[in-house]
Lab assay of single mutants.
Amino acid sequence: MTEYKLVVVGAGGVGKSALTIQLIQNHFVDEYDPTIEDSYRKQVVIDGETCLLDILDTAGQEEYSAMRDQYMRTGEGFLCVFAINNTKSFEDIHHYREQIKRVKDSEDVPMVLVGNKCDLPSRTVDTKQAQDLARSYGIPFIETSAKTRQGVDDAFYTLVREIRKHKEKMSKDGKKKKKKSKTKCVIM
């Protein structure tokens, strides 16, 4: 069974824990209790493949930012979460993405942009803004509501699919490099 290491990042209060708990335990946590770091595991079937999701729910508070490099190193894919009623959390996505790329030393890291709290009427981040940002990053965008469960499975499952595509691409690139290195030079 394939294991996928997913990391949920975003500013404090955007609903990272609520999304994760909704996926794992099928219930909505409405009281806000700032996370330092929590880890969850769940076995699911995605596109006919049974897999184990190892999900790291991270601290959004700035005082825990020193811990970010460590979990970013171990993560295979990242859910970059903002709240649709919090423009600052949307603007912060850029910083999370840049930090992930720096730590992973790669421009090509599996990510999904997630606009959470889409059940709320007080939207300050337009869907088109988020779609445009995701398009500019070359990553999928999904709106979710941890409260109603809308888009929750889709967000995590899409990230797994992005990781699969990335692994497939990397193995193809690896095979191309191996083929090239088999060419021999004969000096007579």
Score class of each variant (00 low, 15 high):
G60F: 02
I36N: 05
G15P: 01
T20D: 08
T35K: 01
Y40E: 00
V8E: 02
D38T: 01
D47C: 05
Y4D: 14
H27S: 14
V7Y: 08
G13P: 10
T35M: 01
R41M: 08
D38R: 00
S17M: 00
V14Q: 13
I36A: 03
L23F: 12
V45T: 14
D57W: 00
T35Q: 01
L52E: 15
I46F: 09
E3P: 12
L19K: 13
F28C: 05
D38L: 00
I21E: 07
N26T: 09
F28K: 02
K5V: 02
V29E: 15
L19H: 13
V29T: 10
Q22H: 08
E31K: 05
F28L: 05
V9L: 15
V45S: 14
E63Y: 05
V8Y: 02
T20V: 09
I21A: 10
S17L: 01
V44E: 14
V29Q: 09
I24P: 02
L56W: 14
T58E: 04
L6E: 01
V29Y: 14
G10W: 00
A11V: 11
T58F: 04
Q22N: 14
T58G: 06
G12E: 12
G12T: 09
L6Y: 05
G48P: 08
K5D: 07
C51I: 13
V14I: 14
Y4S: 12
G60M: 03
A11N: 08
V45G: 13
E3A: 10
I36P: 01
L19R: 00
L56A: 13
G13Y: 09
I36W: 06
D38K: 01
E37P: 01
F28H: 05
Q43L: 07
E37R: 01
A59S: 13
D38V: 02
V7G: 05
P34R: 05
I36R: 03
L6I: 14
K42S: 12
Y32T: 05
A18G: 13
K5I: 02
E63L: 03
L53D: 02
S39C: 11
G15R: 00
I24K: 15
T20C: 07
V29S: 10
G15S: 00
Q22E: 13
Q25G: 15
Q22D: 15
L56E: 15
T58S: 11
L23K: 15
V14W: 03
G10R: 00
P34E: 06
D33G: 04
L19C: 14
G60V: 03
S39R: 05
G48Y: 06
D30I: 09
D33M: 05
A59G: 13
E3I: 06
G48L: 04
I46R: 10
D57V: 02
L19Q: 15
E49I: 05
T20F: 01
I46Q: 09
S39Y: 04
Q25E: 04
T50F: 06
K42H: 12
S17T: 07
Y32I: 09
A18F: 01
E31Y: 10
G48F: 04
K42P: 09
I55Q: 02
I46W: 08
L6Q: 02
Y64F: 11
F28P: 03
L6P: 04
V45D: 15
T2V: 09
I55S: 07
A18H: 04
D33I: 05
Y32C: 06
D30Q: 11
S39F: 04
Y64T: 15
K42Q: 10
D30F: 08
G15F: 00
E31V: 08
S17Y: 01
D47M: 04
D30C: 11
G13M: 10
E37N: 02
D47H: 10
E49Y: 08
S17E: 01
K42L: 08
T58D: 04
T2L: 09
I21T: 10
V29F: 13
V14P: 08
T50G: 10
T58Y: 04
D54A: 03
E63H: 09
